Simulated scan of single mutants.
Amino acid sequence: MHKYVIMGAQGCGKGTQAKLLKQVFEMVHISVGDIFRWHIQSHTKLGARIKRLIADGRMIDDEIVEQIIRERLAQHDWNYGFILDGFPRTLTQAAFFLESYDIDAVIHIDVPDEVVFERVLARRLCSQCGLDYNLIHHRPATPDTCDVCGGKLVIRSDDNKEGLQQRLRDYRTQTEPVLQLFAKKELVIQTDGARDIDAIQQDIRSQLGLRKV
């Protein structure tokens, strides 16, 4: 069983790399952002609260994130392990997690800010099925239209320069200390996220000692 956390600034490619690991090694990809979006699209009470925080450019409260992680991991559908994407983002979340769970490694994808801006501002999301697109690496066959369901592609409400600048500030002040905490426990591997997708994936597998059976 492999249990990993994958971290990095917005647009670094966490979701892409986690999905590749999931496909090959049968791990469960647990994306906190995807869970947030499900709640928003399903119009739950929690979703309404999350939507307000995102619209204001603020990080989601620790108690909300902890509740989501606890409920998701309690499903125990991760026989071959899991990859946590988008968590933990604060020292409070990290403390909660380390008290309750153990992990094998933290994958840190490092990218410069200019790459973050380029990638994030090119992101699009299907308004119907929630599928992610990127106008740099993953364009739809028909502009502004989802290849799978035909839904309209939209820009996420927080994918703008002002919102991104705030999220990067939050990342530097609140999430980078989490990486430092994991580094002290000798859990962190780091990869250059400015390279192409396959090169990043192979580097991650090599550092983790993962081999396709």
Rank of each mutant, 00 (worst) to 15 (best):
T145W: 01
A105V: 13
V65N: 01
T92W: 14
T145C: 03
L84I: 04
G151E: 03
R89H: 05
K152S: 05
C149N: 06
G151W: 03
D132T: 12
I64H: 06
I69M: 07
T90F: 06
R123C: 04
A105I: 10
S100A: 10
L91H: 13
A94R: 01
I107E: 06
H108W: 05
Y101W: 11
F87K: 02
D147E: 03
R123A: 04
L135Y: 02
A105G: 08
Q93C: 11
N79H: 14
L73N: 10
G151H: 04
R89V: 01
V65W: 00
E114D: 07
Y133Q: 04
Q93Y: 09
Q67S: 07
Q128F: 11
L135C: 04
E118W: 15
E63L: 09
I136P: 03
E71R: 10
A105C: 13
Q75T: 13
A141E: 15
F117H: 07
H76D: 12
I69D: 01
W78E: 15
D147L: 04
E118T: 13
R89P: 00
V116G: 04
T92K: 10
R70D: 12
K152G: 02
D144F: 08
D104Y: 11
L73S: 10
L121F: 10
P88H: 01
L98M: 14
F97R: 13
H108I: 12
P88L: 02
D113L: 09
V148W: 13
F96T: 13
F82D: 02
D85M: 03
